[in-house]
Design a protein around this nucleic acid. Structure first.
Lengths: 233, 233
DNA sequence: TGGTACCCATGATCTATGTCCAGTTGTGAC
DNA sequence: GTCACAACTGGACATAGATCATGGGTACCA
């Protein structure tokens, strides 16, 4: 029995394209790896040497200007794919925001394997097209939205992406939900293209307006989801 | 002889993955279409019904907020691929910036064809991965760069993308190059997440500093490429 | 050759957000 | 417990870029 049979993302990651025999072959060239919060798996600008599937945890993709400003260009969750297949350099670093578990492959091995398995490549293509859509939507936010619109959009996105892992919707209160952010205030600022102070002020404003509650630094209770949707623009 | 044999992007578009027999089959489900400047091929939010290859011209991909602010999320050139294969809605409109010629396919037909031709899907995957890299790089610009850095980055990107079609490098003057922009001032603003006034002021500043010259509204002569690189941050 | 409509440049203001800094809260070590 | 450090909040002020307003080019059409 291959260890993949026990994998929690077996049916959601790109591996879902493979039958058990193929999966065994893929498993033979990969290995699982644990990463602690804050640790990097890939660095910006280095040659692409490895790719991976996320099994557990949340990781950020980020780029920096030479003088140290940072922009988070993507966030990946369990079952998401990481890395740049088919050559080239990695345009962004990949760093764990929480403790994480990933299934890593040498990029060369993975490239060769995927070229022989069109169903896998097809899954990867669908996933990449989806990621491109999501990224382009985020460009509208970065280029054209105000700080308050950015914050509202961020909280909505978080409540959608964290469903199941860090976000619970109570059947009694459909307009209300609770989430545990995998981000510090600075990281939220780096996602939204704002400063930490602006993010902090937006949080307190939303709290004062009764739209959210902040039980602790990493916890957010959305009290009025519709108000957020209206504010997201 | 299929009409593809005469196609100028035959060896650069995703079609390059196909042999002449396969190409004939693809050609049978596609047709060329001329688009005049300003005309749209795909509208934001509509179901994805067609995909296409660009043969001639330049087109923009853009999204809008409900109250009319626009962000250009991508620009496509000859040999680039347009549209969203494998279902879903189009997240952005596609509009010609110049007169253009494209090779269009029904999305359903194309989906079916590509699933039967892994080499085509592979090309499409490589192209999509490249586009995702480029898009993520642009996020750093939108989220973290100043107006002057944005303008410098824009002019550099233009001089790179237009090489061959609208940009000439003179061997005598390697630090100098000429380009014909496919954008109005407003469209440049929509690419950079700025207003038209800021774009205009940046142009005159760069001109006054001797970094560029502006022979006409759509023409830019870069006089000091290195200065632009330094300013792009 | 004059009209008209768009596109662009530029000056004068305004304001959202950045910057700087001081104070507070939470957390983990010993 | 308390010490030390990092994360966060919030006030005061500065400013890049937006907004508003005007006038000049340039192309197109009659």
């Amino acid at each position: 029995m291959s260890s993949c049979d026990l994998c929690v993302v077996r049916n959601r990651a790109i591996c879902a394209a493979l039958d058990s025999k193929e999966l065994e072959a893929l498993n033979a060239i990969g290995r699982t790896r644990n990463i602690t919060s804050g640790e990097s798996l890939i660095w910006e600008g280095e040659d692409s040497v490895l790719v991976a599937n996320v099994i557990e945890g949340v990781l950020k993709l980020s780029t920096n200007t030479e003088d140290g400003r940072e922009q988070i260009v993507g966030v990946v969750y369990p079952s998401d794919f990481i890395g740049r297949p088919f050559g080239g350099k990695s345009g962004h670093g990949v760093t764990a925001l929480t403790d994480a578990k990933v299934c890593v492959f040498s990029r060369r091995d993975f490239d060769a394997f995927s070229r022989e398995h069109p169903k896998l490549e097809h899954k990867l293509l669908e996933r990449t097209l989806g990621e491109l859509d999501r990224t382009r939507r985020w460009m509208l936010l970065l280029g054209r939205k105000s700080a308050s619109e950015k914050m509202a959009s961020f909280l909505i996105e978080m409540s959608e992406r964290l469903t199941g892992s860090g976000c619970k919707v109570d059947a009694d209160k459909p307009n209300q939900r609770h989430l545990v952010l995998p981000f510090s205030r600075q990281q939220i600022a780096d996602v939204l293209g704002l400063t930490i102070e602006t993010v902090s002020r937006q949080f307190t404003r939303l709290k004062n307006e009764g739209v959210i509650d902040l039980p602790s630094r990493r916890d957010v209770t959305i009290l009025d989801y519709q108000a957020l949707v209206a504010e997201a623009g």
